[in-house]
Design a protein around this nucleic acid. Structure first.
Lengths: 141, 141
DNA sequence: TAGATACTTGACTATTTTAGTCAGGTTTAT
DNA sequence: ATAAACCTGACTAAAATAGTCAAGTATCTA
């Protein structure tokens, strides 16, 4: 299992944004330079974040992005959801409620994968952007 | 993040194997039929499981595979390790100890990804094949 | 001892996903 | 006006995935 860079970048960029989010909006250009993420790629990512109301955009010269909610209200879940980073352990989710792989019973390990998904999603549900920033300040590196 | 089918199949096949593992070895052909996994693919997977001493092979007519350890000694970690299913959250692991992305400091979210990896690996460390079989019998579906 | 069963290995490949790039906009502060 | 910065959609190279295919080797059973 691995995390895609889209999800990882989204979180990195938002932490960066939250950190520099004082009076002026933060430009993607700055984030791009600080975090070493391609500007074009960032634009794709922020377009999705904006559609999910996680950030707000300010157009024009000296524009940029601003958080649209308080940092403690933005969970990892929300971020990953916005950029389509999903936790997928089975294919058999969407099929008939009864069984998997076209069979009548659930596959032998169905419960396991469900548990795993929940285990991971719990983690994402508990972590907020605020937690990340705090952790960052404390470590100061 | 998603689980690859190689990892998923490995676990499914081992649960199947453990379930039918009485006196005779279990043939891959049977597992293939019961679980709907391609025989050729299963062979690849079991070759790896054998190299990591998770199963033992019995060649010849009426041959097949047998667990090489007790079911409670086989953790998900061991299985995933055998088939190269790894939990990867960052690219910056192998780089210089000090920083990420060629920088001097750790990336803003490095700790987070570490935590996430540990969180997931904990789950794999705790679940044994025995747990899965028990769960299966209790549910009886 | 012939033959069938089943393990063993390695190479090959189509498909999908990822991780972007690129081009051509539009908006707005100064 | 013009530059900064957002905005959008299409495109693509490279990697990973999910297998298939071919050609074995070992050993049980009749």
């Amino acid at each position: 299992m691995k995390l895609t860079s889209k999800g990882r970048y989204a979180v990195m960029a938002l932490v960066d944004l939250a950190k520099f989010n004082d009076i002026n909006p933060v430009s993607l250009r700055d984030i791009s330079l600080r975090q070493g993420i391609s500007l074009d790629y960032l634009e794709q990512i922020f377009s999705k974040l904006r559609k999910k109301a996680i950030v707000q955009s300010v157009r024009g010269n000296q524009g940029g992005y601003v958080l649209n909610k308080k940092a403690n209200e933005i969970k990892l879940t929300n971020i990953f959801d916005a950029v389509d980073e999903k936790v997928k352990t089975v294919q058999c989710k969407k099929e008939s409620k009864k069984g998997c792989n076209g069979k009548l019973t659930k596959c032998l390990t169905h419960n396991l994968w469900d548990e795993l998904e929940n285990h991971i999603n719990d983690f994402f549900e508990k972590k907020s952007l605020e937690d990340l920033i705090k952790d960052n300040i404390e470590r100061r590196i």
